[in-house]
Amino acid sequence: MARPVVAVVVFPGSNDDRDAAWALGALGAEPVLLWHDEHELPPGTGAIVLPGGFSYGDYLRCGAMAKLAPAMSAVRQFASLGGPVLGICNGFQILCEAKLLPGALRPNRQLEFVCRDVAVRVERADTPFTSRCEVGQELVIPIKHGEGAWYVDEGRFMQLGARGQIVLRYAGGDDVNGSLGAVAGVVNETGNVLGLMPHPEHAVDPLLGSADGGLLLAAVVDAAAEHAFALSRR
């Protein structure tokens, strides 16, 4: 079977786009870099990754400018049709700013840029991103961010918890950045858009300390194949 196409959107200031593409390629996908100025996704796109970095220099607020890029209209449309979209770090910030995901990412509580491995607990295994994990499984994945303190108001937080939209939490009481409820990753209501602060693309080989990120990305590749197949039959 042909490798599923996963589009990796490149904004000015993205810097993990190639790492993400490399990791996806190593896990069986056909990664295609998509410049932010493009209006259309590559043909046959089965999933989209918004990579980490500092799009538009983090001007105004992280992700605030990137949400207006032409490629984001295509991302929005793809997501509305149920296509799997993964936002990593700055990609998570962009998805929140674009209101494709709930909440906002604030400067870290300790005002420091954090760069280290963290353990994240999988809260749900029935999403296109965690289908290769088990509930309660802890994944070791690096983080590297200055603005990762996820926030929503209390009412919304309770609602998201009740709906099972909180998919990843920092494990073991590790207060990584002041994130509300130790949230490391959330999905949208329909479960096809995930944003997370940790970088799975940097944890796909045991030589680099952990291959746990590969579980999340391989699941995205699976989901891309399924989605592309479903689209081809419409």
Binding site: R106, P107, N108, R109, Q110, L111, A149, Y151, G178
Partner: peptide, 10 residues
């Protein structure tokens, strides 16, 4: 009510 770590540091 929103945490402002920058303000606290200043």
């Amino acid at each position: 009510g929103i945490l402002d770590p920058q303000g606290e540091a200043v």
